[in-house]
Design a protein around this nucleic acid. Structure first.
Lengths: 235, 235
DNA sequence: GCATATTTGTCCGTATGTATA
DNA sequence: CTATACATACGGACAAATATG
């Protein structure tokens, strides 16, 4: 434990800029989005703090950060848990996505557009699909939509949606049927990209709206089977 | 100081539900949006903690909450400051508003719409204007647009935009010409509300887009004079 | 440039309150 | 109802960084 603390200090000297709490939250965020801490898991202060060699106060700061990213829920005097999304959450996430993503496409100016990041995400998805790595395919799909949002050129919008997409990943870990959930959308992403390349933003927007509607329906269907209507959420 | 701590404890017994850090952050948020702590102010741990009768650890948690709401900026080993928005921030805020608010109006279904909250905000603005309370008029304008966003019925979108509007208020405190900044928009809000009442969402969206564009231009113009192009931001 | 005082970053120990077995 | 486990919040301590003279 003391040795761990020493290595932390070394890191700080090396890269200097971030606080201990931020680095702890980075680690935990990775564990959560990777599914190592599945939704519903309780993160005890003593357990995690001991394992990572940081004090409770520092760890609590990291918890606060992740709570505000909606990845953890904090129940007074009970502790923090990895968030379990309800069906209503999933629906609201898709509402927000539809609102923002379609507005981004509609707000595009004159073609041509800078589509490198979206093309890269499609390629990433094709690689993952060829290797049968469905979890990676889900990640690639999210990258595609993040790149789409980035076309708006708004830092705030990017950040907001990054957090929404992180929530979406929580839902992925609950249903855990990655192939059925992600494979059908690779072709659709490719199609949307093609429309944008052709400068046909209107058709791209239409495809995107249908895409999101379908995705929501399939998600809700599978989700209901898995967790029941109440979502068995702690809150 | 000890007496203050005792009163805190009493409060907790009374209303029971929220943590101390949350209540502290509520107080500080009020001080910031009221302009009591203007942008650029440094909030010392000792000073604030002593005044409010809470420990440093608790206060730091409150700071974290407000930092994630973008109201404070945290500089390593230097402390927390009330955020000073740059011109780029103001532009990005308006980009986000245009994207979301216009998308909300476009996404409205069949009329009639539930416009009570928007009507109440207009009435609030008329009252403030009649009394010459321009700060309150600015608040009423924000309430109008929050109510507009709420028409989408998305909890996440509401929360996201609440934070964006809180940032906007920071900019208000920098320019500090409240009448010039807020008075022209009361009539426009009334007009948008009328269009929605008539079920003419398309025209309402057009008016809204023009509104936001004008508002941004005026804001940037006044803002540049006040803080210079760099925004004199700490970060 | 240097020495000092101030402030933050991190951690610990502990008393109290709350939830649960 | 009691006992246990845990979270909340406080105060103190020391190192490290920053600000000040």
């Amino acid at each position: 434990m003391a040795e761990q603390a020493a290595s932390w200090a070394d890191d700080r000297v090396l890269l200097g800029r971030t606080s201990t709490a931020e680095r702890v939250s980075d680690i935990l965020r990775g564990r959560i989005t990777d599914g190592f801490f599945p939704p519903g898991t309780r993160l005890s202060e003593e357990g995690i703090g001991g394992a990572l060699g940081v004090s409770r106060n520092t760890l609590r700061e990291a918890f606060r950060l992740l709570t505000h990213e909606r990845l953890l829920v904090h129940e007074l005097n009970r502790g923090v848990f990895v968030r379990v999304l309800t069906v209503e959450d999933v629906e609201d996430i898709h509402r927000t996505r539809a609102l923002v993503e379609c507005a981004v496409v509609r707000g595009l100016g004159e073609p041509p557009y800078v589509l490198d990041a979206m093309a890269a995400a499609v390629a990433e998805g094709e690689r993952a699909s060829a290797e049968g790595d469905w979890k990676a395919l889900g990640t690639a799909n999210i990258h595609f939509h993040q790149a789409l949002v980035a076309l708006a050129g708004s830092e705030r919008t990017d950040e907001v949606m990054r957090s929404v997409f992180a929530e979406l990943r929580l839902a992925f870990h609950v249903v855990d049927e990655p192939r059925r959930l992600h494979e059908p959308y690779l072709a659709r992403n490719r199609q949307i990209l093609r429309m944008l390349r052709d400068g046909n933003a209107a058709e791209a927007e239409r495809l995107l709206a249908v895409y999101l509607q379908d995705s929501l329906e399939r998600m809700v269907e599978v989700y209901r089977r898995r967790v029941g209507d109440d979502g068995s959420a702690p809150g």
